[in-house]
Amino acid sequence: MNYANFLERMHNIQDTYGYIPECEIDKVAREFNIPRSKVYGTIRFYSMFYTEPTGKYIIRVCDSLSCHINESKEIVEVIKDYLGIDNGETTEDRKFTLEIVECLGHCGEGPVMMVNDHIYTHVSKTMAIEILDKCV
């Protein structure tokens, strides 16, 4: 088994289910011939892998220094208010998960937010709401 495929495998499971369910952990453990605890431990190390269901849209707002200076906190507050959830939580209808994350690599264009794979730069408070509305 090529261990270099492990992360890719996890990404695929994550993309399919929106998280990595226990049955898949079992399968992967057998396939790669490693204990389940090791698979679980590895998954939990990476912030982009989840062992609980996430929302259809994962909203990531950067709050590292450059974005922080550009008032990313305000964007976070607006989104929290709008969705009624806190950092790390998922809405009841499983539509949105909100995460305050570290640098997304668009430091010159902050504040920055990411909805699944899509990046939005120079985000204003109204823009943040518009982006969420589009998802609904």
Partner: peptide, 8 residues
């Protein structure tokens, strides 16, 4: 190509 998964 290996995709990372969020770890500085």
């Amino acid at each position: 190509l290996v995709k990372g998964a969020g770890a500085y």
